[in-house]
Amino acid sequence: MTLVALQRAFVAALRDGERRAPAFIQGDASTKFGVYHNAYRARLRDALRENFEKTWEWLGDSRFDEAISRYIAACPPSSWTLADFGDRFAALLDGLYPADPEVGELAWLEWEMHRAFIGADAAPARAETLGDINWENARLRFVPTLRLRPVSTNAGAIWSALAAGETPPAAEALPASAALCVWRRDLRPSFRTIDAREFMALRTALSGVSFGDLCKLMSAGREDHQTVVEIGSTVARWLADEMITEISAQADEFPG
């Protein structure tokens, strides 16, 4: 038996739901191989419990462990780092709980907060050091940890309550379309629930359009001046929240 054949057989037995030791294991094969069989699942379970602690609390042990079993079977780990295991867990929960959309939204928020914690560093732009800017041509560059997702529930409020050790509110649909926005301020992951209009502005700005074009795109059905004031105020908020790293009037400074 070649080494690669042995390793494939070992892995097949490891992933098999039934604990069956490969024939080439010596001695009390079932008990000894069981150490690896159990450790594989325990390690992945512990990683998900750690990364999705609040989702676990929200779902309870039984439903969370059932989701873990399904996830391990559907999305076996492939990355060199265990930190990547869980990147599709929120999507799995979206599918498992279509009538409870707060579950997948809460899991997405938890995952992105963890990812933001170890995401790339970036110094935020400071409003007081920006100087004169030709706003018509100005383009915004955002921190690399910034992530967005449309949401329909109060998952953000649930996360905050669980993080504070408080009783979370009941899940409820938001009165209007909204999104979750996650990023890191210095070393601290942060998030905000934003309304549909800020979500649209942020997505458009992330695409690399100029401030002038952003205002035009956002002004449909409104007075231009009103839109400029609104978007100017929104950009000021992004600056204050340390979401922006650079504002430049030179389009070619933003390759791609």
């Binding site: 070649t2 080494l3 690669v4 042995l6 390793q7 494939r8 070992f10 892995v11 490891l14 992933r15 080439f24 690896y36 450790a39 594989y40 390690r43 992945l44 990683a47 076996p76 780990p77 492939s78 990355s79 060199w80 265990l82 295991f85």
Partner: peptide, 25 residues
Amino acid sequence: CWTGVDGFNSHDLLPLPYTEEALDV
């Protein structure tokens, strides 16, 4: 040790058979 094969990663330190082929690998 080895951790996986064919793109799968067990995230465990799996044991090797102590053979000449394994030594070469």
